[in-house]
Simulated assay, not measured.
Amino acid sequence: MDVRKFITFEGGDGTGKSVQIEKLYQRLKQSYALVHLTREPGGTVLGETLRTLLLNTPDLYSKTLCALFVAARQHHWMTVIKPALEQGFWVLCDRFIHSTFVYQGLVGGLEFSFIRLLHEQLETYIFPGLTFVLQANPKISYERCKKRHYHQTNYLDQQSFFVHCAIENSYRQLNLGNIIQIPPNTLEKTEIEVWKKFQNYLLDKAVL
């Protein structure tokens, strides 16, 4: 299993993660047949069920919320991500372990030691080979969240601008694993920057 082929996208809500991970997925499909795209929370039947619950239940106790996220991640890792990597796939994931350290840790107030221990106990304290953190002007990303179609919104979209800014700032502070920060730009320029950084990563890590 080559965890260097495990690539994740992180960032606050409305930063364009879903757009950019799809663009990288399509480009990789042109060069490498074995590419799997997934997301968190989600990626499995259990994960998608929990996604609906977690994103529509704003009053969960912080440690309960964290435990549910990590439990879903452990199942996702064991049943989807790890088997795909073992088969030689590239795996692209929209959010992974960094999200928990930001949302439940830096913003939610849980100690990093608690989050780490929880992952270790479930054998999921794993950092991807590469993590892109997409940045955005908080005012712009906040407005994107507010403009989402009603049936797609969740309590994260309805958080205050103060919380939204706190999430953006927390991602900028994050220093866990192999992170590449992608500064705010147009979708097209961001795609170009992501692809360039990815190619540099291939050369530097000699993945292929």
Rank of each mutant, 00 (worst) to 15 (best):
K29G: 07
I81Y: 05
F89T: 02
K63F: 04
L28N: 03
C66K: 06
F69G: 12
T64Q: 08
R95F: 04
R39F: 00
Q30W: 07
M78A: 14
W90M: 09
A72K: 01
W90H: 09
E48R: 10
L46Q: 09
V45P: 04
L55P: 03
R27D: 06
G42N: 11
E40L: 14
Y32T: 06
V80F: 01
K63L: 06
T57S: 15
G43W: 01
A33G: 14
L46W: 10
Q87G: 10
F89G: 03
Y32K: 12
L24K: 02
A67K: 06
S62I: 13
E10S: 04
E40V: 10
T38Y: 08
F9S: 00
Q87F: 06
K17L: 01
V45L: 15
T49H: 14
Q26N: 05
E48F: 07
G43Q: 09
H76F: 08
W90C: 06
I97L: 14
N56I: 14
Y61M: 13
R27Y: 09
S31L: 08
L53G: 05
L28Q: 04
Q74N: 10
L34I: 06
A84H: 12
Q30R: 12
V70I: 15
Q20T: 03
L53R: 10
L92M: 08
G11T: 00
S31H: 07
Y32W: 12
R51V: 05
L24Q: 01
T15R: 00
N56F: 14
L50G: 07
D94C: 04
T49R: 15
L37F: 11
A71W: 04
V35P: 00
Q26W: 02
T44N: 14
L50C: 11
L50Q: 09
K17V: 00
Q74V: 03
K29Y: 06
T64W: 03
V35I: 04
L85W: 06
G47A: 10
G42E: 08
F69H: 15
F69I: 13
C93N: 09
F69R: 13
E86M: 06
I81E: 06
K23P: 00
S31C: 05
R39V: 03
A84F: 08
R39C: 03
S31Q: 11
L37A: 12
Y61K: 12
L24N: 01
V70C: 08
R27K: 09
L68E: 02
T38G: 10
L92P: 01
R73G: 01
P83K: 11
A84S: 10
E10R: 02
E10M: 05
R73D: 01
F89H: 15
A84V: 05
R73S: 01
C93L: 07
H75Q: 14
L54Y: 10
T44H: 12
H76T: 11
S62R: 09
R27W: 09
L46C: 11
L37P: 11
A84E: 09
K63Y: 04
V19Y: 11
P41G: 12
L50H: 06
C93W: 01
S18H: 01
E10A: 03
Y32S: 07
A71Q: 09
A71R: 05
A72Q: 02
R39N: 04
S62K: 11
L65E: 13
D13M: 01
V45T: 14
Y61T: 13
